[in-house]
């Protein structure tokens, strides 16, 4: 229980906004909290990957980066 409280509070720490849910499917508040937690870590990985590919293309030059690298970098 305490672990969940800490997780929940970390999610809250990273920005909390009262936002009414108008979507016609009901995501369920539990699911929104889950996307916040998973999203937090996923965002770090996403951002790292994005800058890694950008760096790779800058350092190695475009000819040495593969098509998929360029695609990943443009994200």
């Amino acid at each position: 229980m305490r672990k969940l409280h800490v997780l929940g509070m970390s999610a809250v720490f990273f920005g909390c906004m009262i936002a009414p849910a108008y979507a016609y499917i009901d995501p369920g508040s539990g699911s929104v909290l889950t996307t916040a937690i998973i999203g937090f870590f996923a965002a770090i990985a996403y951002t790292c990957r994005k800058y890694f590919y950008r760096l790779k293309s800058v350092v190695l030059g475009r000819s040495n980066t593969s098509e998929s690298d360029r695609e990943a970098a443009s994200r």
């Binding site: 936002a19 508040s29 929104v32 996307t35 999203g39 996923a42 990985a45 951002t47």
Partner: peptide, 19 residues
């Protein structure tokens, strides 16, 4: 109580989708 939301960044959503 109204639904409380956490502000999600685009990176959070895209990161989850890519994962």
């Amino acid at each position: 109580k109204g639904a409380s939301g956490f502000r999600h960044s685009k990176a959070m959503v895209l990161g989850t989708i890519q994962g």
